[in-house]
Design a protein around this nucleic acid. Structure first.
Lengths: 255, 255
DNA sequence: CGTAAACTTGACCTTCGTCAACGACAGTGG
DNA sequence: CCACTGTCGTTGACGAAGGTCAAGTTTACG
């Protein structure tokens, strides 16, 4: 691990706990990858899967692992982070509990490092085990394909956010993305913003100051309510959805 | 097809031509997906694969096909296009010859339509055939995995472009992306810009006017040379690479 | 309670989007 | 062959929006 504090191995090699942590990994019912994986626990290779605990800012560099691994997020948030040569930071993609991240590239030249944006536990599954399981279990495979295309479409949506949306629209989209991916039920208004303003900014292609201002402007027009610094409640779903879809209210409308 | 002109079916059902068109599909050697696919031509299902010809602007809507298909680009360019509610257009991802695009989502709610950005031929491979072949052939599978992660990393890079790069930097990145994906050899300076200024703009999150100005500014500082409207030559690779990686020259530096 | 880090607020200024006009070029029809 | 037309690309002038910088305020945590 090339992070500041080396993350500690939490579970021993033969301690298997790939099933959902705390009853849910973030997926609903049959969409959970953990359940079908669970059926394969007897496989010796899966015993190599380890859980590591990360603090905010800890990095996971692929080179740090003897064999290629797939990261499965149990709780917390990880991101792929990249820096331009003058230091500008971007968060290219996020992964929430129940999601996996495969950073292994043939040419070993990845487009960024993996970093924890909050206290996080990550399961490391050797990549060849992952692939083998996919070959053996058609149900697992079906679920995997679905997840993979979903992730791709998420990236598409994110590109749309970054390419053509105003800061306010990006924030509105992000709120829905968060709620979906953290499985917040529709009738629950209030939820936790799991990452810092700076991280939100780096993910949305904005500055932290702009995130601040945009949140305030959304609050002023009654779409959301900020509760402390890390909680937010959606008051007007329809309105916020309209904004997210491009109903063009720019920041200055509400300064 | 929901495009203006309905694309015409070019090859008859039992005419099989999934091998590389004109000796190469854009991949080099073993990276080509077509070669291993070729071994499976006897499979009855593959005979269902059809080639269609598209004009610039033609659309391919998933609903138009009786069964889910994967698009394989033989030549030309296709893109996933999305529109915000007020009409702003984005191109979320591009596919060049030799690349494939899988737009099939479980929930059938895709993030955009597929559209041709130039005269294009596309092979339609039924998705279940595609998956079956992957199960049968480990070599094909290896190559497919590699391509899939490459595409993902391409999306990451693109997010980095959109999120934190200046217009000049985006254009520089785009030039390298084009050259890589169209397999232009390093020593070849001149190549064709296969899509319109407007499409470049919509892909890079800019306006067509800005694309124009940026290209001119890159020409002024000697990084590239514009030859007619649809050709460009890279004169200073190192310099252009530096710009693409974030050496921050903004547009106004060279107005 | 005290300190550092995270977040907010305000004032300013650069950049690129906007709008409008113009130029280049291809296709069309007489 | 040329005038006509429409599309695409270029150029210029201008201003809104968000980045930038600096100073405050709040929060988290020991």
């Amino acid at each position: 691990m090339s992070g500041t504090t080396p993350p500690k191995i939490a579970s021993s090699p033969d301690h298997l706990s790939f099933e959902c942590v705390q009853e849910t990994c973030g997926f609903k019912g049959e969409e959970c990858l953990c359940r079908p994986m669970h059926l394969h626990f007897e496989k010796a290779e899966l015993r190599a899967a380890r859980t590591i605990e990360l603090n905010e800012g800890d990095q996971l560099a692929p080179e740090d692992f003897p064999e290629p691994v797939v990261f499965a997020v149990l709780n917390g948030v990880i991101a792929v982070e990249s820096h331009l040569s003058d230091g500008r930071r971007s968060l290219l993609t996020l992964r929430f509990p129940g999601e996996y991240l495969d950073m292994n590239r043939a040419d070993r030249h990845a487009s960024g490092e993996v970093v924890a944006l909050a206290p996080t536990s990550v399961k490391l599954v050797p990549r060849n085990v992952f692939e083998e399981l996919l070959l053996l279990d058609s149900n697992l495979r079906r679920i995997y394909w679905r997840r993979a295309t979903d992730i791709m479409h998420q990236q598409f949506d994110h590109s749309s956010d970054l390419g053509k949306k105003t800061p306010t629209e990006r924030m509105a989209s992000f709120i829905f993305e968060l709620r979906n991916r953290m499985s917040i039920p529709r009738f629950v208004e209030e939820f936790t913003l799991p990452i810092s303003r700076q991280s939100i900014a780096d993910y949305l292609g904005l500055r932290a100051e702009t995130v601040s201002r945009v949140l305030k402007s959304l609050e002023k027009e009654g779409a959301v309510k900020l509760i402390g610094k890390h909680k937010i409640a959606v008051l007007d779903f329809k309105g916020l959805r309209k904004i997210a879809n491009g109903a063009r209210p720019r920041l200055s409308n509400h300064r």
